[in-house]
């Protein structure tokens, strides 16, 4: 009888990192569907392209770091990063843009920091921020929702999309590009919000964006139900963003967009449920997560309204990632049997 000595516990919950990652990827499905529905095959093609690249980069890095290959590839984390990048990029982003983004995310933001679990910043957001700064033209050229073109569901054919993404972007670019609602709102000149709503075609079709956001939220609620993450971060994020927006909207409805607009356009929902909840780079304790979420919400509103960039989810999350260790130090929970929680590194009560 070969008996082994192993430390307790002897039973484990049948969960695994790979399983969690898979579940998160599945939860993006409603969002992917909505994106495809409104913006065409580009999103799907990007996801596949990005995933292939991500797995390749990951494998190369693991090999270079002399780590077991299949063990790490199986954890699905690279694919999740790729999916998130693909969802964040414009649907018709040229192939090289995606490639650069994935390279930055996997190689620089993740593996160079020590691989899974060690990255201080969310890889997808690092990549997004980098390409946003480096290639502003490509990044701000979204397509208008296809609902614009004619009657009913009418998206660009799959092959056309392929050639658009992998062929020469410039030839066709102008035919499809359009600003996002956030862009429109930012660059509305001297118009009041009311006038902007009436004047802009893009804003007239904002419904597509609402729908996509709703789809993301659905996935998020599924994850919440599955207890993949706690409610603290998304709730604090959305409530603080909504709260600030409401406050300014009440002060001056002409100058500031309404809270609903803020919550449902741009990357808000994707950020709230899929990016800010990334456990690796966010705060640890529940209290910490609330502060983390509030920070993101506030920064998003500030950058969107007074900053240079139309959307700010990536920057806000990155900034708060930076603050996460600090938040952790001051938001330790009160342990059982202690009167007060400990604070700071030295654990002063």
């Amino acid at each position: 009888m070969a008996l082994i000595r192993i430390t307790s516990p002897h039973v484990h919950k049948p969960t695994s990192t790979a399983g969690i990652m898979r579940l998160v990827i599945l939860a993006t499905l409603p969002g992917i569907l909505a994106m495809t529905f409104f913006f065409g095959w580009g999103t799907l093609i990007n996801i596949i392209w990005a995933s292939a690249l991500a797995v390749t980069f990951e494998a190369l890095c693991i090999k270079a770091r002399h780590r077991p290959l299949s063990f790490y590839l199986k954890d699905n984390s690279a694919i999740l990063t790729a999916v998130l990048i693909a969802l964040a990029l414009p649907p018709f982003a040229p192939w090289w843009l995606t490639a650069i983004a994935v390279f930055v995310a996997i190689v620089i933001a993740k593996q160079l920091y020590g691989g899974i679990g060690q990255n201080p910043f969310n890889p997808a957001m690092v990549a997004y921020a980098l390409v946003l700064i480096s290639f502003p033209v490509e990044m701000t050229r979204w397509t208008a929702p296809f609902m614009l073109y004619g009657e009913g569901w009418n998206i660009l054919a799959f092959t056309d999309t392929l050639s658009l993404i992998f062929g020469s972007w410039a030839e066709h670019a102008d035919a499809f590009t359009s600003a996002t609602p956030l862009d429109e709102m930012r660059h509305r000149g001297g118009l009041t919000t009311e006038e902007a709503w009436r004047a802009s075609d893009v804003l007239a079709n904002v419904g597509a964006w609402h729908a996509v956001s709703a789809a993301y939220a659905m996935g998020g609620v599924l994850l919440l139900y599955k207890k993949i993450f706690s409610w603290h971060t998304p709730a604090a994020f959305l409530l603080s963003l909504g709260g600030i927006a409401t406050f300014f909207y009440i002060i001056s409805p002409d100058t500031y967009a309404d809270p609903f607009f803020h919550l449902t356009v741009g990357g808000t929902m994707l950020g709230a449920f899929f990016i800010a909840t990334d456990p690796v780079s966010s705060a640890t304790s529940n209290k910490g997560k609330i502060w983390f979420g509030i920070g993101i919400g506030c920064l998003i509103y500030i950058i969107r309204t007074w900053g240079n960039y139309p959307d700010a989810v990536a920057f806000s999350i990155l900034l708060m990632n930076l603050a996460a260790p600090f938040i952790d130090q001051y938001t330790q929970p009160r342990a059982y049997g202690h009167k007060a929680p400990k604070r700071g590194m030295k654990g002063k009560a």
């Binding site: 002399h66 780590r67 077991p68 290959l69 920091y113 020590g114 060690q118 990255n119 201080p120 260790p325």
Partner: peptide, 21 residues
Amino acid sequence: LIATDTGRTITHASNKEGTPS
């Protein structure tokens, strides 16, 4: 922590292992 070539001594790997970020 273990290198694919486990022969390269565990001490090496554990030495390399840094503190968490």
